[in-house]
Design a protein around this nucleic acid. Structure first.
Lengths: 138, 138
DNA sequence: GTAACTGCAAAATATTTGCATCCTT
DNA sequence: AAGGATGCAAATATTTTGCAGTTAC
């Protein structure tokens, strides 16, 4: 498994304490994180602004991707397959648990192709499934 | 085609000028609307607060549904098939045009089922396809 | 007439920007 | 040493809430 340090290096980013800590959060968790999750992280609270800027940098470098949700929030998750800058390959399904609210990247479930009406040319697809996750089903 | 008046009546809502105007916007447009689209509507600007409250009411009554997008915004679109309160049947694919930014409900394209890993129980699915729409392809 | 809806003001939240300071390389 | 990253303050933008006045039924 790639470490935070390795991710920063291969992305050509300076290795700073904050970035390492935020990556550690992502690496140590199955579920996707919200801005708030990161801001009030256990070790020491991050400055709001730093979180905004760090997430933006990670997005730009293809380290993380955004997951759209129907409620105002946006979630972030690591790109498992290396993404080029700007171009994401996060064509996997995301699962949101209605019970515990955790969002999981189902990296092995790829978004199926659909047949669109005449005239629509697809480029990217995203799929979000909600329901009950493994942990909550027990 | 159902009129705004009819929609309000069957939903048990008071028929007010603002609600009729907002419904008219939805009915007269193929694409989904953002909060901002509605706020600065052509006839006369709505009060911000009224838009928030009206959209919330429509959501509660199952008149409209939200469409998640990867950029911070949320879009709203009419539910074509009658939705019960709280329970939406908007299981169709949404299409976002990368060129003109319009979001269209592909009402006839239903979200395909996917096989999830053991333990995950799906309840709802959403799918967003981005690319080039009919209008922009010309 | 009563309950529901709206608009205004203001509070609470969230996001962005500028700049001085500190840390990486 | 130089450029990038961070923290603080403050400017913007977004969303929510309270309340008084208005409108629908």
């Amino acid at each position: 498994m790639e470490t935070g340090l390795e991710i920063l290096k291969r992305s050509g980013l300076s290795v700073t304490d904050g970035r390492k800590r935020i990556l550690k959060l992502f690496l140590g968790r199955e579920a996707a994180l919200s801005h708030a999750d990161i801001e009030r992280n256990t070790e020491a609270a991050f400055d709001r602004v730093t979180v905004y800027r760090t997430l933006q940098t990670f997005l730009d470098k293809g380290i993380i991707h955004q997951i759209p949700t129907t409620d105002n929030s946006i979630l972030y998750a690591l790109c498992k397959h290396k993404c080029e800058e700007g171009k994401h390959h996060d064509n996997h399904v995301h699962f949101i648990c209605d019970s515990c609210d955790k969002t999981t990247c189902l990296d092995d479930v790829i978004v199926p192709a659909v047949k669109l009406p005449k005239g629509f040319m697809p480029i990217n697809s995203a799929m979000i499934v909600s329901g009950i996750c493994t942990d909550c089903k027990k």
